[in-house]
Design a protein around this nucleic acid. Structure first.
Lengths: 333, 333
DNA sequence: TCGAGGTACTAGAGCGCTCTAGTCCGGAGT
DNA sequence: ACTCCGGACTAGAGCGCTCTAGTACCTCGA
């Protein structure tokens, strides 16, 4: 920087002004400084820049490396944040790197706000973090005081799926749940309440599942066993798309035709679900919408807006594809 | 830091020593400083720490947000780098954020070395980057002078797959290629040369594909058309697992049984391929191996080792699962 | 003619660390 | 007794920026 200043025949401060696009320099000088910088291959040091500034403008994002939906959210966050004066810092977690380690890194960077995608941290930890910084939880319930969260309306989404199946003529529906994954409880509960609403004489079955393809595949035998009995379900609503994809594979391998024998509805509208051949009917939660709300929450809290942190619920929408149809005397036979 | 020093009754320098785990402090003092820091909720500022130090120890990693295999590599990199004194900085790219933007960020952080996963940048750009920093390209050819690269042996992998199919008794094999994706050319070429070796009288067919599930699904009609003719292939080797998964779905939807009518082999051993129901036979490239070699290259160049940058080729291995079997008079009928 | 006010620019003090060059002190060697 | 050495600790100068408080100069209205 010193060198650039010397070459352009100005002071260091002027160089700083030019590179910050701050007012206080004439057009000609700007030109001269930029030229000198280009010749010397100078680009400002990001760390030093942040150090000197009182604020860092950094938004730390912790995400699950293995979760495709998180990747979508991260991408959306990059786009939302661009040009806002803030900046995204990524820290991934997964087996091999704990969420705690990921957050540690983010904190070390002096991020001003933290965005946690689908955190599995205990509520107390979240509350402790939120005490120091604005904390936005995405795609999961905040749960802790002072933590704001942005998530899809899980119950509403399940209701949407069930209504779709009912309107197709299905009267017996099963649910493959998400185990202890974020959102699983809400979805299971919504399914159960739909069950008592539509079928007051007896509950619809819930099969244990989980958030991944493997969980879905593992749930297949239990589900297939249900189909052999009279009064068997003709449709299934699955916790999420990845689980549904695993289930779908396993069902088809077992000779069960979808949607002829069984209609399947997922949740998330994962990128994979629109692939021809998968073509899964599902409930879509919009990553761009979740990302922009999360960013608004973070900035809102940062910029002294007293907007109460709290749960922000986004309405999902139904995407009808090829895995649902009206029941046609399928596997109950 | 000032406050911590005061509270512990020592100088700032001592606090620094303690937090760097540097020699020059007694056990008792260390204890006292740590306690004071804990009480004050102090944790060192990462940026300032790097600033003061002459080196940053930062390894910038640019990866594709949508690529599950990249996620695996990133995870492996985190593990390899941990405890080495270096640190990973992530920057994702995808539609909506160019690779150039991702690298820009990394450069701003003053990363000492750059690791680019499957870059699609022009060779000249890579060369220019490599002029300033050690640059390691992973899962693609380096191509430019001064750029080192770590990748699986694409040709060897294809050979492995073809030999497996031959040993099962297949004599006519097709290939769905990867279009312009990194590695696609090498794999296609290896397939063609296997073709001329085994079938000097006429080449095996190559169907255009691509790196994603959608590409695989799109390739299905062309492949199915081949199966109707006499002398049709009884097996197919697909560019990568995601493409194979899309293809698999589409084939099965069209009533083609795998592996009875057609054996399918992928490439990568994507996480999804081991899912029950997909259960894809494939060629595995070990992410941990690629990651650790990439790290070694980076550190090697960084620490003044004159080890010539160049292509480092890792041998892949065959993973036999459920999508291959011996041909049983399948779709040729 | 004088200053008021604005623009272009500079000096220099931080930001929160690390690191070099010390100082201080207690014990071993002679 | 003296020096000498090494471990524990400190002072203070950076690192590469930003930012506040200025200086110099120019223009304009009274």
């Amino acid at each position: 920087m010193e060198d650039v200043a010397a070459r352009a025949g100005v002071s260091r401060a002027l160089v700083s002004i030019v590179f910050r696009d701050a007012p206080g320099a004439s057009g000609a000088t700007r030109e001269r400084v930029r030229a000198a910088a280009a010749e010397l291959g100078f680009s400002p040091d990001h760390r030093a820049r942040l150090l000197g500034r009182s604020r860092t403008g950094l938004i730390g994002v912790s995400f699950g490396l293995r979760l495709t939906f998180h990747a979508d959210l991260v991408e959306a966050l990059y786009e939302v944040v661009r040009g806002s004066g803030y900046e995204v810092v990524l820290s991934g977690n997964g087996p091999g790197r704990t969420e705690e380690a990921a957050l540690e890194t983010l904190l070390g960077y002096r991020c001003e706000a933290l965005v946690c995608l689908g955190p599995t941290l205990p509520v107390e930890r979240l509350a402790a973090l939120a005490a120091g910084h604005p904390l936005v939880v995405v795609a999961a319930r905040g749960g802790a005081p002072g933590v704001s969260s942005v998530r899809a309306d899980d119950a509403g989404g399940v209701r949407l799926a069930v209504e779709h199946l009912l309107s197709l003529g299905h009267r017996r529906i099963a649910h493959v749940d998400g185990g202890r994954a974020p959102g699983a409880t809400d979805r299971r509960r919504a399914f159960r309440s739909a069950s008592t609403r539509e079928r007051p004489d007896g509950p619809w079955p819930v099969v244990p599942g989980g958030p991944t393809e493997v969980d879905g595949a593992r749930a297949a035998p239990a589900l297939l066993a249900l189909l052999d009995r009279p009064g068997a379900p003709t449709a299934v609503q699955v916790f999420n798309d990845r689980c549904a994809a695993g289930l779908l594979h396993a069902l088809r391998s077992a000779g069960c035709r979808v949607p002829e024998d069984l209609s399947v509805v997922g949740f998330d509208d994962d990128r994979l679900s629109s692939v021809p051949g998968v073509d899964l009917t599902t409930v879509r939660q919009e990553p761009a919408e979740l990302a922009s709300r999360a960013f608004e929450h973070a900035v809102g809290q940062l910029e002294g807006c007293p907007a109460s942190p709290g749960d922000d619920v986004v309405e999902p929408s139904l995407v009808v594809r090829g895995t649902t149809s009206s029941p046609r005397g399928g596997a109950t036979a």
